[in-house]
């Protein structure tokens, strides 16, 4: 069974009442539910209590781990994820193959590393470290790139395949990210799907952003386009081990889009999944 769900950032009674009952799985981003106390991020007890009350599987999907930072991963992120692992029955957790920090300085965005042997060794070692730290399945997601392709020793899919081959981790395939990279001339959808180890894909993301100065940007601010759901259906037919499809929306955008629209979108995505 493929579960269809949504991400949730907590402390939103309307969202909890209107959208969550329709979700078969809920994605929680540790960084998004955390707050600062004396400059240190932590997850408030009331948020943990609320998330604990969700009665469908919960996954963790980070944005702040910075697994591809040459200097270090974020210890703050690992502590946040750890605190949720201790209190929630987390089905699996995941991150992006990217970096958001350099020498501890936050960039305000996520960038892709060059696909070199050096980056591969680094990411694989960290995947092993994370898997040793948490006894949960770990997945990695490819990242949209708005800059020229940094290239490297591996193709886009080949780099992910090698991580899977060396570490045994799974993959998240974000079909909107694929659309962005195709639109922006970074990677073709057919070539990427033709090369990727599709058996490693356990989760699929759908979302929508904007086109800015000709570039398709991954900002998770809108409901999905019909083309994205068509691509989702095409990908589902090729990925035998997918367990979840998540519609991703930025928490701060929820009041503008409206919980009813998000609930309707969740049902639309579910219909697309079940039509496969």
């Amino acid at each position: 069974m493929i579960r269809v769900g949504v991400n949730y950032e907590g402390r939103d009674p309307q969202f909890a009442e209107t959208v969550l009952p329709l979700a078969e799985i809920v994605e929680v981003t540790p960084d998004a539910v955390a707050t600062l106390r004396d400059g240190v991020p932590f997850i408030p007890d009331e948020v943990i209590r609320e998330l604990s009350s969700i009665d469908v599987p919960v996954t963790l999907h980070g944005v702040g781990l910075s697994i591809a930072s040459a200097d270090a991963m974020s210890e703050d992120y690992l502590k946040l994820a750890g605190s949720l692992m201790q209190t929630l029955d987390v089905a699996w957790h995941s991150e992006h193959v990217g970096y958001v920090m350099v020498d501890g300085e936050h960039l305000g965005t996520m960038l892709v590393p060059p696909r070199t042997g050096e980056a591969l060794e680094l990411v694989c070692a960290r995947v092993e470290e994370i898997r040793a730290r948490y006894d949960k399945p770990f997945l990695l997601e490819h990242v949209v790139n708005l800059f020229p392709d940094p290239g490297g020793d591996y193709s886009h899919a080949g780099f992910l395949n090698e991580i899977v081959h060396r570490t045994g981790c799974g993959l998240i395939l974000d079909v909107y990210n694929l659309e962005c990279d195709a639109h922006n001339g970074i990677a073709g959808v057919d070539a990427f799907l033709g090369e990727l180890d599709l058996a490693a894909v356990r989760e699929i993301h759908v979302a929508c952003g904007i086109v800015d100065r000709g570039l398709r940007v991954d900002v998770h601010s809108r409901v999905t386009r019909d083309e994205t759901l068509t691509l989702l259906q095409r990908v589902l037919a090729m990925t035998p081990n997918v367990e979840a499809v998540i519609f991703e929306i930025l928490g701060p955008v929820v009041p503008f889009l409206g919980v009813e629209a998000i609930a309707a979108e969740l049902q639309r995505v579910r219909a697309a999944v079940h039509a496969c």
Partner: peptide
């Protein structure tokens, strides 16, 4: 190198 690339992008 990876760290040089990332510092340059930052």
């Amino acid at each position: 190198t990876l760290i040089e690339h990332q510092r340059a992008m930052r």
